[in-house]
Design a protein around this nucleic acid. Sequence first.
DNA 1: GAATTTACTTCAAAACTTGAAGTAAATTTC
DNA 2: GAAATTTACTTCAAGTTTTGAAGTAAATTC
Lengths: 189, 189
Amino acid sequence: MTQGLLYPSLGLEDAVLLSSRGDGLHIAPDQPRRDQISDAPQATCFDLARLLDRSSRRFSGLISAELTRLGIDDIGPSQVMVLLAVGDTEVSVGELLDRGNYVGSNISYYLKQLGDGDYIDRVTSQRDKRSARIRLSEKGRQLCADLRVAAKAFERAFCVEQDLRDLATAFQALHRLELMWANAARYGV
Amino acid sequence: MTQGLLYPSLGLEDAVLLSSRGDGLHIAPDQPRRDQISDAPQATCFDLARLLDRSSRRFSGLISAELTRLGIDDIGPSQVMVLLAVGDTEVSVGELLDRGNYVGSNISYYLKQLGDGDYIDRVTSQRDKRSARIRLSEKGRQLCADLRVAAKAFERAFCVEQDLRDLATAFQALHRLELMWANAARYGV
DNA sequence: GAATTTACTTCAAAACTTGAAGTAAATTTC
DNA sequence: GAAATTTACTTCAAGTTTTGAAGTAAATTC
């Protein structure tokens, strides 16, 4: 791609991007070819980071659209992420911080809105009264369920066996990468 | 994990998270075990999205730290992402929009700051005077080079052959997923 | 050559993020 | 067992980033 080849590279073909503007003619091929990887341009960690960024944005956009469709306008995609992070468990704020790598005040901000919108229940822990325990309210659970239904549509579009295996690999590889980035951030590369 | 198993799942072990707060004791093992994947909990697309989100945040953090180290404080990680998107090529604003899936006004905002800081050169295209052509200035190129040097350190920490292959797979899988998300956003699931 | 489209930019409001400071409960120390 | 420290948050007041609605001006189409 660009960036030169100074950097450890992941074999891949040059990214074919789907234009998100204009005439709608620049559709990328459905099936990026998996052959010819070996002699294709290489991607750097920066390319990967940009891909993550872009993908996140896309996902947020999707969630936004879905929220609109569901007639929900008191929370946005960021709050939904927190909702998803809570999941079916009962967590403390601290756990949420770890799960999403948020900053404390940030989570507080989201939880306030989620609380105001009645998407979560907050109970002060009896054990440790400093600690707030969070879980989804019925409304929150319902929203998550609705989102899962929407996501189901992807399953149908994305159910090729190989894709799922690749995504599983992707998940693990990314997870390891995330840990390294985290360590680097903490201990200075 | 949570979310139930209602959703197409990617086999993976339960995420071992690295605490980003507190005593610094909760370090995740260096080498997450690759066995026992088969009978491990499953991750949903939502889990993947959260991972992307988290990873992006981590990467931004890293870039921020690096910028500070380099004594740069007139731009932040978001602007750097744009810089990286420009790369060694000369692009129009429209191309950048596509590359990063940004909104127009957003890119304008970043480019303004990058321009003010002299990280980029902007030339009005002679062909089409509406179109601005962007490329890195010497300063911008230098910054990118510096960042690559910093990133080099990762290479050493992350150079296991298998990891690189996994990341390559991850890149492709994610890229395909991104395209699908983009399509979904455009054509409504 | 008027109307439309494209390629942006600007502006103002909203959303999000950060960091410093605060509160209150738990724990440790003396 | 009281004082000091630490933990687990919350609040606030900046920032920064993102969005969306309006612009502007050059190209295209009719």
